[in-house]
Design a binder for these strands. Structure first.
Lengths: 337, 337
DNA sequence: CGGTGTCATCGAATCGATTTGAGGGACGGC
DNA sequence: GCCGTCCCTCAAATCGATTCGATGACACCG
């Protein structure tokens, strides 16, 4: 048995001839390699990384950002012989706060995409199980690894770009504020109900540039249709903004579509900026002005954080840089009418 | 130990008081429930369903169809205490034909989205391991379960709709022919190199309606940009078609965008139909005429096929119906000029 | 021929749970 | 007081591999 084990695992000294003999015997006996379950138990490792994807799979998967990060992650994990187990986030508030998989599935490391708040019940569950955790775009905590980008600086750059073009009436369309909030204008007194770290940071970037938005519109998710309704509302309301800085590209492209439908020219009448740096073929021939984040690298960074844990290192923190890409959807502010 | 086991698993007779006593002791000892690895080994089940997603994660995840089916699958599998392990399909032809995960990962059942050909090396690997397999949109084989939709009938309906509108010059934009083929017109003698079952079926639907397409344009993937270049090519070429039947909604929306860019009116100058029934917010206010397939139900059907296997039943076959949704992108054929 | 190194073989412990059966304590019913 | 039921406790086998040490076979070198 020891020899067979060595023949399959390749660890330890074994002659090529013996190895082949073992493999032949295995084939003759219809033995298709070591049972992963036994191996995992013995090794104490499952080779599985649990990845919690946003509220609902469907919703978060319509989000190309999550997809591309996930792709970068899978590509990095593959060579390490690690697999990705999909774990749905808490879909509806009435059900259990954490998916049973998070409590019971075998996994060596957990990754939470779209990390929420520090007191997230998922973090509690993972801590209880002693599962090392990587948080993406979340609030930093001492015992979890973090991967993020310079949200704040990126949004500041985008806003400064608009300022430089002479815009003064700047509105902003944000990602969700918390799990429950619907869409619509955010009154000033509700600014504290902001439990999503990523929304907070990108909003702070606008302020950093010295801008107080003439309107803040929150959306329930980063989807084109929500951008469209946000754009329609903002552009038909009183005191129309001349520029709209959006917290995601999908939202921004919705705003652009809304503007076009209203007969407004982009960027002559209204400038629109996004965040993420996606390819948006349906906006052609326009190219969105946006803050480009390295999505695949972000996934790779998560992969490296996972690898750190597995090699015994403690939690690590990584922040990736962003760059402003100036497209055709932003231009000089229109003359005051 | 037996009592503790019963307390956690809930199987067998145990008094509520004892159960609580065990749970308290566990909490005091920092024991966070049974180790899944031990449990899995003993049970002989991992509770994991391996799902092979298209060529590249990035690419196939940009495909909303796969995402929504995956979502339906995860929703169905959750209550059964099953998790989904993501397995990348063979990304590049130079690398190994099957992902190592497929060979070594612990899984009770495997699912192949976008099932390819019968001699797919993945099927071979799974057969060798004795892993029950569910094939989605693939060629039926005796020992695997199949889930599919009425591709052929759906495409036939769409084509008949175009015929009824008086179109005679009908072109078609197809999904990939095989793993390697690039994009472009398909010469008649290459029609045999069609190794993708889904492409073949949808093409057959056109023929069933009695139509011989004036042009068949194959694409490397179901993406908006490929639809766009297909549309540009077909609409600027000689003998312009008056209707283009596409094998996916993303391709169709690319064709619509191309038409608009060329100054052609949809549907006055050219009619476009799709397949899938996605929401395409960026096409607004147009609504694509398309063959709607029940995506979430398709995922659920896969889940049931998986459940069948786990309950000891043999491979099952399911085919879901489709419906034609008539939108605003198809209209009467233009007068002959 | 002795010494050395390489590698196959054998036996046994271990990972952590599940499951079964035997045995026995507690309790209620008659 | 006896019997039956319910349920806890204890011991042991099992799932399938990995890993360690000891032993032995064999070839090669000096």
């Amino acid at each position: 048995m020891s020899t067979a084990s060595l023949a399959f695992s390749g660890a330890g000294p074994i002659a090529a001839a013996t190895r082949q003999r073992v493999l032949d015997a295995a084939a003759a006996l219809d033995y298709s390699g070591p049972n992963p379950l036994g191996r995992q138990l013995r090794r104490g490792r499952s080779g599985i990384v649990g990845v919690v994807v946003g509220d609902s799979l469907r919703r978060s998967f319509r989000d190309p950002v999550a997809i591309q990060v996930l792709d970068g992650l899978v590509s990095t994990l593959g060579p390490l012989d690690l697999g990705v187990l999909l774990i749905p986030g808490s879909s509806d508030p009435s059900g259990p706060a954490v998916d049973p998989l998070l409590e019971t599935a075998a996994m060596d490391v957990a990754v939470i995409m779209w990390g929420g708040t520090t007191d997230d019940p998922m973090l509690g569950a993972l801590r209880r199980r002693g599962t090392p955790t990587v948080l993406v775009e979340g609030q930093h905590a001492p015992d979890v690894a973090s991967v993020g980008i310079d949200d704040r600086g990126g949004m500041r750059q985008a806003t400064e770009h608009l300022l430089a073009l002479g815009h003064t009436r700047i509105a902003t369309v944000t990602l969700p504020f918390d799990r429950c909030r619907g869409e619509g204008l955010v009154p000033p007194d509700e600014m504290d109900h902001l439990s999503w770290e990523i929304t907070r940071r990108r909003l702070a970037g606008v302020t950093d540039a010295g801008v107080t938005p003439v309107a803040i519109w929150a959306t329930p998710a980063s989807l084109v249709e929500h951008g469209r309704s946000a754009g329609t509302a903002l552009l038909t309301g009183p005191d129309r903004p001349t520029a709209i800085a959006c917290q995601s590209d999908l939202l921004a492209s919705g705003v652009v579509l809304a503007a076009r439908e209203l007969g407004l020219r982009v960027p002559e009448d209204v400038s629109v900026s996004g965040f993420d740096g996606l390819d948006l073929p349906w906006l052609a021939p326009d190219v969105l002005t946006t803050v480009v984040q390295p999505l695949a690298e972000k996934g790779a960074a998560v992969g490296h954080a996972v690898a750190d844990f597995l090699s015994g290192a403690g939690p690590s923190t990584r922040e990736l840089p962003v760059t402003l890409r100036i497209g055709t959807t932003t231009g000089p502010a229109p003359e005051v009418s």
